[in-house]
Design a protein around this nucleic acid. Structure first.
Lengths: 319, 319
DNA sequence: ACTTGCTCTGAAACGCGTTTCAGACTGTAC
DNA sequence: GTACAGTCTGAAACGCGTTTCAGAGCAAGT
């Protein structure tokens, strides 16, 4: 494998000159530039990215932290991230945490050890206090609310977003509303419950279901829901996938939707449309794109930012 | 940022000794080991991964190439890859190609430039001949069939798999069968068509639909399908997502399934169960895991392998 | 007493591209 | 004729951890 010194020798110039040709520095005579070019072609020179990385201190990589790589909820975020990364010639190292704190720490250790230039957390269980201890090693951006000054944030405010969804339900004439959330104690679940109790007059503790993450969980909910005595007339899900599982199972059992139970999802993932799911659309792809850009800019000296986006109602036939 | 030389000076030992402590080499006296440990703690030493990478020539990274990061079809592969990577302390650089040949080339260029140790292609449009030109730069593994000797392959054979699915349909009593495929000219689509015409007596050209990738495509199919004069009695989809979109749309229109039209999917993705989709289960997570392992072993000198896995019928209510 | 074989240590080279700095040279301006 | 600015060039240092090699010290084996 020819390196820059071999090329220099072969073309009878200094390594500096070769480096200049590589980087298209103007101060190289036509003749030497040509000689170097030819030498590179003849020896099959390939620039060693590792050496470049060590030398410049830039890895051209960000680590992207998320609980599950294969959870469709994160798909659109990741898509936005990937598109932005491509534009800047950056690579994304994906890090699956399965909600394990130590996995999050390992991901941020990449930052410490200069394996990546920055970190983008689509989800985190770590406290912001701990997260800030990593800030000195590179820019960090999160897709969640409540980040401190030093940490960039691009997110939808789940309280506001949930209020918006609950009002859509209210306007459609539903007063008895239940909500189906993901992890019990996640910040977003807490915010959503808060919104529920603040906004819905007939809100009830037992109409709050937590621990529903996947479409299978949604199927599972059908049974326990139908067995319940006093049921809400509408269910607001924090995820389209859970809503879809529930919807599919109910339709299969011949339950009429929305006559017996109305369903509102949250995400606006394309697959929901296939089933006519009414949902609150969250601009996740934009968030992904912006998260990348923000992190990139911050690496180049820009200040950290907080960017709150809003959700919109995407009508279907389940409401 | 303290480096290894700073530590050496502070602990009054050579850099070699520091390196030995870092790598837990036994030939270091207790006393010096202790001094080095203390120096590292006091100066807050953090090993620079970039330097290590340049020095050892190992990046601890593989690039994973796939058309869309957010296509749920690849989710289970990626999940398997991620789990295997975690075990070996490897990172995955995800590369989205959108089926663009030049994106595939860019991904493999990472290999050329020593930015990754190996490449795993879940999908590719590149010919194997071209792919082989990259082989000299590191191990390559694909999830597709037909790879040459030098390139590892872990896959389901789509011809065999499709024959299996078609026989499931035949055994269930369906003779008039149509198939719905993804990209027209992809090797897997070609193999599937071959299987169709070889296996199904009543196979017809116009019962082959191509270009269906997403659940939305499945919705779109419903209309043109229902308008067709002579319809097959069963549809075999090459993707659960397309099948689900189609299924959802038909159910919404009140078409009785499987009485009017039977549906068989392909993948066995969990979300299919929510809707009772009958499907051929493909062990994609295993494939992902094995792809990683194979690439890893090959990097350590093992020979390339070809590993063909089989699909199994996963009953639902749509058949 | 003498070889053999560990254990321990560190100087120097290595991987490889970039950057700094000093110097030479040419051309233009005054 | 002298300055100054711009062009071109290369030696050396830099980023930083690993590896090779040579050598010293010491104990066990014959």
């Amino acid at each position: 494998m020819a390196n820059i010194r071999d090329i220099a020798k072969y073309a009878d110039v200094s390594v500096t000159t070769v480096s200049r040709v590589l980087n298209e520095h103007p101060y190289v005579s036509k003749e030497k530039r040509e000689r170097v070019r030819r030498a590179m072609a003849e020896l099959g020179y390939l620039r060693n990215q590792q050496a470049l990385t060590l030398s410049t201190g830039r890895t051209q990589r960000f680590v992207v932290v998320l609980p599950y790589l294969d959870h469709p909820y994160y798909g659109l975020f990741v898509n936005g991230l990937a598109k932005a990364a491509l534009q800047r010639d950056y690579r994304l190292v994906m890090w699956q945490t399965e909600y394990q704190l130590d996995q999050e720490r390992q991901a941020l250790d990449l930052l410490k050890h200069r394996e990546v230039d920055g970190a983008i957390l689509l989800s985190h269980t770590m406290t912001f206090d701990e997260m800030e201890t990593y800030r000195q090693f590179g820019p960090i951006a999160v897709a969640t609310v409540g980040a401190p000054q030093t940490i960039s944030s691009v997110h939808v405010d789940h309280y506001t977003a949930f209020v918006a969804g609950l009002r859509v339900l209210a306007q459609a004439g539903y007063a008895e509303i239940g909500i189906v959330l993901s992890r019990q104690d996640s910040p977003s679940s807490i915010a959503r419950q808060q919104a529920y109790f603040d906004e819905v007059e007939l809100a009830r503790e037992r109409w709050v279901w937590t621990g529903y993450l996947t479409s299978e969980d949604g199927i599972g909910l059908a049974d326990s829901f139908l067995r319940q005595q006093e049921r809400p007339r509408a269910l607001f899900f924090s995820s389209d996938y859970v809503a879809l599982g529930f919807l599919g199972e109910l339709r299969r059992r011949g339950v009429s939707i929305p006559d017996e139970i109305a369903i509102l999802g949250f995400d606006g993932h394309p697959i929901g449309q296939a089933f006519g799911l009414s949902t609150m659309h969250s601009p996740n792809e934009d968030i992904g794109r912006t998260l990348f850009d923000v992190t990139f800019e911050e690496m180049n000296g820009a200040a950290s930012v907080t960017n709150s986006l809003t959700v919109t109602y995407l009508p279907g036939t389940t409401l």
